[in-house]
Design a binder for these strands. Sequence first.
DNA 1: TTCTGTTGTCATAGTTTGTTACAAAAAGGC
DNA 2: GCCTTTTTGTAACAAACTATGACAACAGAA
Lengths: 254, 254
Amino acid sequence: MTTELHDYFLAPSTVGIAEIHLLVVDDDKELRNLLGDYLRKNGYRVSLAADGGSMRKSLAEQSIDLIVLDLMLPGEDGLVLCRNLRVHSNIPVIMLTARGDETDRIIGLEMGADDYLPKPFNPRELLARIKSVLRRAHTLPDTEEPKNGRYLHFAHWQLDTVTRNLRAKDGLVVALSGAEYRLLKVFLEHANRVLSREQLLDLTLGKDADPFDRSIDVQISRLRQRLGDNAKEPVIIKTVRSEGYILSTEVSLN
Amino acid sequence: MTTELHDYFLAPSTVGIAEIHLLVVDDDKELRNLLGDYLRKNGYRVSLAADGGSMRKSLAEQSIDLIVLDLMLPGEDGLVLCRNLRVHSNIPVIMLTARGDETDRIIGLEMGADDYLPKPFNPRELLARIKSVLRRAHTLPDTEEPKNGRYLHFAHWQLDTVTRNLRAKDGLVVALSGAEYRLLKVFLEHANRVLSREQLLDLTLGKDADPFDRSIDVQISRLRQRLGDNAKEPVIIKTVRSEGYILSTEVSLN
DNA sequence: TTCTGTTGTCATAGTTTGTTACAAAAAGGC
DNA sequence: GCCTTTTTGTAACAAACTATGACAACAGAA
């Protein structure tokens, strides 16, 4: 009896049963404590941070499920923090901002926030958004897409869900076929995890695996070519021998 | 009471994304109809359902933007329905419930409702919440898109059922032929759903499908040209290989 | 009638995707 | 090391599918 990788992915719902740990980052002490109390009263474990430094400290020491981040922070800007979070982890972020300005909202989402809440807000509203974002974030395997806003972020690549293009910030555009798009999307949704051919088939085509089906290999090969990833020394999608493939986001493509 | 000519000009009947389609699910017939009338008077398109069964039927047949769901339903419980909705779709839900009980509110949000309204409520309150939830749900960082040529978001269009013109908010008017009009109308009525060639033939011509009929393909091609949608990279009407076509209003669902 | 625009059919070209076959690479045994 | 087995990469082929120009039939208007 072997333990299959598959087993690890079947029950991420258990994550939701554990106590969920939020990190509230706001420089306004009163608001911070108020939020902390309110969220605790609603069943969350809550840590607080006043600035980017203590935020990083908390992140290093604890396992955080979601960050509530004020846009305006002394020292570092919330947007910068948010972008860094996006690049270095996939902890969901809800941004708070002083004005309900459309521009801010766009910027917030561009920077990779999972949701956005203009001050002043109703705490109930925040609660609802936290739940909603967590729901999306924890729907890891199968079915629904956690498309937050328009793009899926992959370092500084963006997968355009409308055109099915992959766009780099520098303007480079890569057109993908349907299958390539689905495959890459699945990888992005499960970044930094090994995905077996079985899983990939299931997640892209809803098909179950014929034990000797090489179609995934071929699609991987095609996708790598599109992404400019060399199979001999792949940087984006790596092969895990006899297990499957993994997309790694710990990659800088400069 | 006379109908004046100018009424026609002021309020041409239109089918479009602009018209938002609500589904009210409540077993109390009187309240249901009352709500329906009230919401229609306020500019929404409204469907009604008395129980979980007819709710599902409506959802299968029509493109619904938001559901107003009573907590207490005969047969299936509203909460269960709500949770199922959450799992299987992302249509926003506003829950109605008999008591203004805090517990219920929490439960409602737990189950994934986007908002919650205790009975008895002021219909204007419901209206406000509907707007608020829709605003949140439509959190598309959309509109301006590049670049070389026209890239219009489809939500900005309206199909005029009198003149059979397609009108853009910016004043642009596209005249459609009869077949194109019927086709687009069907797409709008079933936005964000994949429609098979068979269905499209049936819905536009009442014809059933000859398995080797390419006429839909040709009409799609013509419609795309009218809409400025490039077949290589369609934004409005996308091809779903071996399934059919889908009109997407989201800058999403894959 | 003639003219004009609409619509279905057909034919052709182009795209996408799974399968197969074989070479190359990796892992192990000796 | 060298040989064998297992696994992966991918070119090449084939099958399935889609896009659309061209044309003819048709309909309605002038």
